[in-house]
Design a protein around this nucleic acid. Structure first.
Length: 502
RNA sequence: UCCCCGAUAGCUCAAUUGGUAGAGCGAGCGGCUGUUAACCGCUAGGUCGUAGGUUCGAAUCCUACUCGGGGAGCCA
């Protein structure tokens, strides 16, 4: 559109006449004045229409606009502290309805998650979702620029892949002209080959996991970036991961402070993310889980949460009494909403309280040689301030391609990065086994068909070098940056078990 | 795959513990010159998820199923 102004730029245009195109996200009208909140993709701005000669031609139409009507509107920018955002549009001289609307399902009231998820295509017009997806775009851009600026070459790895990598049970099977193949759950092996051509490479794209998980941390389709570097040791890979995560955090904080605050994200917690991150080994982690600090943490949790449930109980009683004695309808409604919120919080806490003794048991009985579970990771993460690297896991619980620790044959040179505040594993990575004989032995030990891995073994036949890399999950990172309770808000069209619409 | 919770109006939830289905919001109409999810009045709107069972009587109790939410396992 020619002569179009964007809301994001209105701060510098006070006093000027501007033309806005956008959608009406909220409309309130009195007899002689109407307030339209306009959303144009760059931001939101309130437009004030007063009934008068200048607006006579369209005032009656404008005051009845349904939510999400698309319009063109011409007026003058005015600074006004009563308006959210500091400026508003007044002295409206032209108004045109471009696309009508009506019965828009997502009202300014509360909605359930099932309702919203079934209308995801509309839901992401809402302020909160709009901010999250913009932050995601920044994160994706930060990922690309980080590697591109450091001389990494982008390699696109295949999405159709034969069964390589870890257990085939978590892969989506596809009929490929009569042949059974799978949607890729990682591009890692492919990117390793490219690493031997370009030295520093990364792949970035969607990956697929058929795990039957219905939790706040899982999607069946998610984006992952996987860098791989040659002639490197574990410390160098860890340092890359550290710099990378810091770069993302810096970019998000620099560009989205307002958005983060609006989302309720504590920005100070993000600003604490500085290198070097804590580094512990798997064996250290085992000791932490068996130690008194872990036990005390959980016991304190139990005490705190029990207290909170009691407090909520009396709060609910008070609110119910208040609701019974309230006279105004809105007072009754307000009390009802507070009661509902308190009940929800209480039932969530009650479930956690039931689980805590089990967590204490799991932690104290953790055995060397098993993988760390989500509960274990949360405990370790909470006993540290920032992100934590956990390195050197037992080789039995890790993938065949991970490099054996030459100092202790029971271990592999791998790592996970646990994000703080319970966001869990955002990175998993390792050195890759570069020795032909060891790799071949491990392929056989994992009962994998050697013939499928001939190409991968070639990388060790022709100029093998120490190399390593990692994968970072975009949605988990977005959830962490934004402080989201559930990963489903971190993708425009999240794919989960039993959820593929829209 | 396992455990817990839920399903009542377009939406979010009530229904005094088995006795004639309610409120707010949203929608429609009217009023109000400054609203920000909280103004006032009126109107329309429900086979209480599905199928059985218990009972004089079921939204409420029982069984099965479907769908959804949360968690475990597993993972990024």
């Amino acid at each position: 559109m020619k002569d179009r102004n964007y809301i994001a730029g209105l701060g510098d245009m006070v006093g000027s006449a501007v033309t806005l195109y956008g959608w009406v996200s909220k409309a309130r009208a009195s007899g002689k004045i109407a307030f339209l909140t306009l959303r144009d993709g760059s931001g939101t701005c309130q437009c004030v229409l007063e009934k008068g000669d200048a607006t006579a031609a369209f005032f009656d139409e404008a005051k009845k606009l349904a939510q999400e009507t698309s319009v063109r509107i011409v007026g003058t920018v005015r600074a006004d502290e009563r308006a959210a955002g500091g400026v508003e549009l007044h002295d409206i001289t032209e108004f045109e309805c471009i696309g009508g609307s009506g019965d828009y399902p997502i009202t300014p009231k509360a909605h359930g998650i099932d309702f919203l998820m079934n209308r995801r295509h509309l839901w992401f017009r809402s302020q909160r979702q709009w901010r999250i997806l913009r932050i995601r775009a920044t994160i994706v851009d930060a990922i690309r620029s980080f590697y591109n600026d450091r001389g990494f070459v982008l390699i696109d790895t295949p999405i159709f892949a034969p069964a390589i990598g870890e257990g085939a049970s978590t892969l989506f099977e596809v009929d490929y002209f009569g042949e059974d193949i799978f949607l890729a759950q990682t591009g890692q092996l492919y990117v390793e080959a490219a690493c031997m051509a370009h030295d520093k490479v990364y792949c970035f794209g969607p990956t697929f996991r058929a795990e039957k998980s219905k939790t706040r941390r899982h999607l069946t389709e998610f984006w992952m970036v996987e860098p791989e570097i040659a002639f490197a040791d574990l410390d160098e890979v860890l340092e890359l991961a550290e710099d990378f995560v810091c770069h993302i955090v810096d970019r998000v904080v620099a560009k989205h402070r307002d958005d983060l605050e609006s989302l309720g994200r504590n920005v100070a917690d993000l600003e604490l993310v500085k290198k070097p991150f804590a580094r512990i080994t798997y064996t250290d982690a085992r000791d932490i889980l068996h130690g008194s600090a872990a036990r005390e943490l959980l016991e304190k949790d139990l005490g705190d949460k029990t207290e909170r449930v009691k407090a909520l109980g009396s709060k609910i009683e008070e609110l119910e009494a208040g609701r019974a004695s309230a006279k105004k309808a809105w007072q009754i409604e307000k009390a009802a909403q507070e009661i509902q919120a308190a009940r929800e919080e209480r039932s969530e806490l009650e479930e956690q309280i039931v689980n805590i003794p089990n967590h204490i048991k799991l932690a104290s009985e953790f055995e060397w040689g098993t993988d760390l579970g989500g509960v274990d990771e949360t405990i370790i993460s909470r006993l540290h301030d920032g992100p934590v690297f956990v390195t050197h896991y037992p080789k039995e619980v890790k993938a065949f391609y991970m490099r054996e620790d030459r100092a202790d044959g029971r271990l592999v040179e791998n790592f996970d990065l646990l994000a703080p505040e319970g966001y869990g594993e955002v990175i998993g990575g390792s050195m890759r086994e570069e020795d032909f004989d060891i790799l071949l032995r491990k392929i056989k030990a994992h009962n994998l068909p050697v013939e499928n891995f001939e190409w991968y073994l070639d990388l060790r036949r022709y100029g093998s070098v120490p190399h390593g890399g990692f994968g970072l999950g975009v949605e988990r990172t977005v959830a962490w940056m934004c402080g989201l309770k559930h990963i489903r808000e971190a993708a425009a069209y999240p794919r989960m078990m039993g959820k593929v619409y829209p």
